[in-house]
Amino acid sequence: MTIAIVGDSEQVTCTITWAGGHTTTGTAIRAVARLEQLSYYPQLLDRIRELAEQGHRAKAIVERLAAEGFRPAKGRDKISTRCVDQLLDQLGYPPQRRRRPAFPPGEAPGPDEWSLDQLATELDMPPITLRDWAAKGWVQGRRQSTPPHRWILHADHDELAELRERRARPAGWYTRRYWQQPPEQSQATD
């Protein structure tokens, strides 16, 4: 069997030579690291440009691209809104930021409280990682009672220092620490 990748694209050619000498050839699709590697990247940019010129926003463009069969580099169902936003920015289209609704009365962040995005910016980290930390209880917070149920996180001066220390630890630090701890002695019960 021979497998050949077409350039560095997602396209793969497979050739099987059977024992009797017959040859079967087929194609397959593989995940690639970047959109730029996709064989149809120029057509993708053209289509995004067309849809933007028609006045479509990123979310609508994502749905159109998915319906038209454009797929992301990493094999997911559709290209993300964030990715389309980045491509629109590269193509020179101004950002289309949505105004976030105001917090309901009495639920705005108080002293030493931050919105998730504000705290992520302060800690220089991805908001999705900070949301994971909140879900794990590594940072204390509360959720807004009405949609979109935004996180409001608490971090005073000392907690900010602890979070910065946690952020500075290398990836996998907690997993390694878990496996390096001596196993707990189990007590036999009769």
Rank of each mutant, 00 (worst) to 15 (best):
D8S: 04
F70A: 09
T23E: 11
R49D: 12
G20E: 10
Q11A: 07
R30Y: 05
T13I: 15
E50T: 12
R64Y: 02
V62M: 09
E10R: 07
K78H: 13
F70S: 12
T24E: 14
T81F: 00
D77Q: 15
T27I: 05
T13Y: 03
K78A: 11
K78R: 15
G20D: 12
T17E: 04
E68H: 11
G20N: 14
S9C: 01
R47Y: 03
L65I: 11
L44P: 00
G55R: 13
R34F: 15
L38T: 04
L51V: 02
R47W: 03
W18P: 00
T2N: 10
W18C: 03
T81K: 14
H56L: 14
A73L: 07
R47T: 03
G75N: 11
P42S: 01
A52F: 02
I3V: 14
Q54G: 08
A67Y: 08
S9W: 01
D46Q: 06
E36G: 10
A31P: 03
R57G: 10
E53P: 00
E36W: 01
L38H: 02
T2Y: 07
G21L: 10
T17M: 06
L38C: 05
L45R: 07
M1D: 08
K74A: 13
T13S: 04
I79W: 09
S80G: 15
V62C: 12
V32Y: 08
S80P: 12
L65S: 08
G26Q: 06
P72W: 14
K59L: 05
